[in-house]
């Protein structure tokens, strides 16, 4: 049996770990999932430390939480921070089956463990007599030296693989500013600069499109990445609404009859954002 302190620590950590895992599972946004997972990993690191695996605990924090999870975050940023999973399940019965399988599997595992009669445990005090790191080092460089060397090859391969996968072949010379300008004139589609976003300057502006004189949105004003992700926040409706309210208030104050009041433009079509390239187009 372990000490009471460890028991307390375990229960606290277990709650955090399971909570983090469930959070990762249930959070809609990838960033939140990543952060939840990081919490789980940290609590696991503490579990490792508590169980005498000092080296692993530190490695868990430094490598896993520090490096791998950051890598995850980088990729999440690259792919789109706020791109959310739609909650609608597309595969029929997938969710139910997954939950059933998960529950069944968990029950089986736990039942199996419960039947395993693991009451006795040796503890690591003997194995860790020379220190955990020294013990591990002795094993790694004697018994597991071959596996260790192979791991090196594996890491090299993975590094090269990642580079190859993300490498983009440059097939033509990069166009200079002059060439681009000339091309723009030649194409004669959009000769002057694109409109700047956020004319109202009421927001963080970049994802808010400029409004044209008739109150419609100038989609060109939003950068293409945001457009592709569909992350345009249209405020035109809000503005028009407030304009209408202002007109109304003015009319009330002036005591005009309803017939004399200026007509506010009726509700417009909802903003149609530039559709992201769909599957068909990509193909």
């Amino acid at each position: 049996m372990t000490s009471t302190g460890e028991a307390v620590q375990f229960w606290v950590l277990a709650v955090i770990a399971v909570g983090g895992a469930l959070g990762m599972l249930l959070m809609k946004k990838a960033v939140h999932s990543a952060l939840c997972l990081a919490a789980t990993m940290l609590s696991l690191a503490v579990c490792y430390l508590a169980q005498g695996a000092v080296f692993l605990g530190v490695v868990q924090i430094v490598v896993y939480t520090g490096a791998i999870m950051m890598l995850f975050l980088f990729v999440v940023m690259l792919v789109g921070v706020s791109s959310e999973d739609s909650l609608k399940e597309q595969l029929k019965g997938q969710r139910v089956a997954a939950v059933l399988c998960g529950v069944g599997f968990g029950v089986l595992l736990i039942a199996g463990l419960a039947n395993a009669k693991l009451s006795h445990f040796t503890g690591l005090s003997e194995a860790n007599a020379e220190g955990n790191v020294q013990g591990l080092a002795k094993l790694i460089f004697t018994k597991y030296v071959w596996a260790f060397e192979v791991t090196g090859a594996l890491l090299i391969t993975a590094a090269i693989g990642a580079m190859v996968l993300t490498h983009r072949e440059k097939i033509r010379e990069r166009l200079t500013q002059r060439q681009l300008a000339a091309q723009r004139v030649k194409d004669n589609i959009q000769v002057p600069p694109l409109p700047a976003p956020g004319v109202y300057a009421r927001h963080n502006a970049v994802d808010i499109p400029a409004l044209l004189p008739d109150g419609t949105v100038a989609e060109d004003s939003v950068m293409s990445t945001l457009r592709e992700r569909g992350q345009i926040r249209d405020v035109s409706q809000e503005m028009l609404q407030r304009m209408a309210e202002l007109e109304e208030a003015t009319a009330d104050w002036l005591g005009r009859p309803s017939s004399a009041r200026p007509q506010v433009a009726g509700p417009r079509q909802a903003l149609e954002t530039v559709p992201t390239p769909t599957k068909e187009e990509a193909e």
Partner: peptide, 30 residues
């Protein structure tokens, strides 16, 4: 406390992870 509890915790986490693979669609979350 019996250290077997750590094993239960591991089983629980594993199951949650596995279910997540089946349920989530975002490749990163997966």
């Amino acid at each position: 406390m019996n250290p077997v509890n750590y094993l239960y915790l591991a089983a629980l986490l594993f199951t949650i992870g596995a279910s997540g693979v089946l349920i989530r669609r975002n490749a990163i979350v997966l």
